[in-house]
């Protein structure tokens, strides 16, 4: 008897729990989360990580100077392309929602981000991408803004190798 009662209870609870969303119209989240990468962001990340590996391989003496320079410029180009795409993605989204902001704020924000993009482009071009965590850093940094490691790539850039 108790068994039947418990079994009935179990079945009822489970069925109610499973059916509830359909009956009550509750939805699971359908969107991508804020910190998930978009396609362009992902491509940029891969390129930056590859840049990190090239730096590492070069430091560890696994790459020739010539190969290093060739690969670095190639990967920087890939990273820049991805960055442009990402900026494009952002502009599209921003334009779609810009009407909610005041005109001044909209312009201010747009300029701010465009400046950031420009700085990032510069950092990729000049090789101040952190060799430890692949964060692109501004030109004048001596330490990585993300992880605090020193930026060896910068020294070399200054020496002009």
């Amino acid at each position: 008897m108790t068994v039947l009662l418990l079994a009935g209870l179990l079945a009822t609870v489970v069925v109610a729990y499973v059916l509830h969303p359909v009956v009550a119209g509750r939805w699971a989240p359908m969107e991508r989360e804020v910190d998930e990468l978009t396609e362009a962001q992902h491509r940029k990340r891969v390129a930056l990580l590859a840049l990190r590996d090239v730096e590492y391989d070069y430091h560890a003496g696994k790459l020739d100077d010539a190969d290093y320079r060739k690969q670095k410029s190639q990967l920087s180009l890939e990273a820049l392309t991805a960055l442009d795409e990402e900026a494009g993605e952002w502009r599209t989204r921003f334009d779609a929602s810009a009407h909610e902001l005041g005109e001044r704020e909209e312009r201010a924000r747009r300029e701010e981000v465009e400046a950031e993009i420009a700085a990032l482009r510069a950092s990729i071009r000049e090789g101040t991408v952190c060799t430890q965590c692949a964060t692109p850093n501004p030109l004048e940094s001596r330490y990585c803004g993300e992880c605090g490691s020193a930026l060896p790539g910068r020294e070399r850039a200054r020496r002009g190798t």
């Binding site: 910190d35 990468l37 962001q41 940029k44 990340r45 930056l48 960055l83 990402e86 900026a87 952002w90 981000v113 400046a115 950031e116 993009i117 700085a119 990032l120 965590c133 692949a134 964060t135 692109p136 850093n137 501004p138 940094s141 330490y143 990585c144 803004g145 993300e146």
Partner: peptide, 14 residues
């Protein structure tokens, strides 16, 4: 890093 901070100039502002 699971995610590279997007366009970010200053340290930590990204």
């Amino acid at each position: 890093p699971t995610r590279i901070p997007a366009p970010g100039a200053g340290s930590g502002t990204a």
